[in-house]
Amino acid sequence: MSSGQPRDELSAQGVQVAGRLADVSLTLAPAQVTAICGPNGAGKSTLLAALTGLLVPQDGRVWLNGGELAQMADRDRARAIGYLPQAGEVAWDLSVRALVGLGVMPWAAAPLRPGIGVAEQAARVDSALATMDLMAMADRAVSTLSGGERARALLARVLAGQPRWILADEPLAHLDLSHARTLMAALRAQARRGVGVAVVVHDLTMAMNHAARVVVMHEGRIVADGPPVEALSPDVLHEVWGVRGRWLGDVGEWALAISG
């Protein structure tokens, strides 16, 4: 236990992973959407994996509510942190309800393991389905869903675990504008309910308009961190992405103009 760690936070301190992360420190706040941006290979997914506890860094520590994540029981960690991986793979042609039901797993009662019963599990699945507007297609096979519906179902899987933290790795990849907005709106709704959300986003306009905080990574380091207007300033855009760009418009409806 380190002294002075506030109760409700997920925090990486001096995290290093050879070739990918160099001394990264980042503290996520609850009730907020934090966008993690950066070019390919900047270390975004690696940082997310470290914050999820999937990757134990060679140096540095990850703290969850004052306890070290690497020391926590897998099940406790899984209850607190919901992780939406990049690939979005579903190996078997499950129904939407069965897919979403996987999210309840860390809570489910099992032999020698106390947990919630079948009825409560079903209630949580229903609630997640309703939140993502999937009730009408709950019994459909995942293979019959459109890309946007599939992305909603995958997020509903995470919501069914009712995590305190949601870490999503590029959930907007392959989504059209409208579905991307729907998904970001769902993540913001979770943040309003108190959930801390970190989302890796390539679309800077999405980050600018939908995140309360933007973390910019470059070559394994955090180079900017703050409100979107500051973290994605023209100087940062130039330094990190090598483009000359400026933001047009106003809060919530920013557009990026690139002039070279």
């Binding site: 939406l84 991986p85 793979e89």
Partner: peptide, 20 residues
Amino acid sequence: ARDLDAMSLGMAAARSLGVE
């Protein structure tokens, strides 16, 4: 059996669901 269910989502997601 339940761990194998979680594996439907791939190893990373399964681990994030508490699979050892």
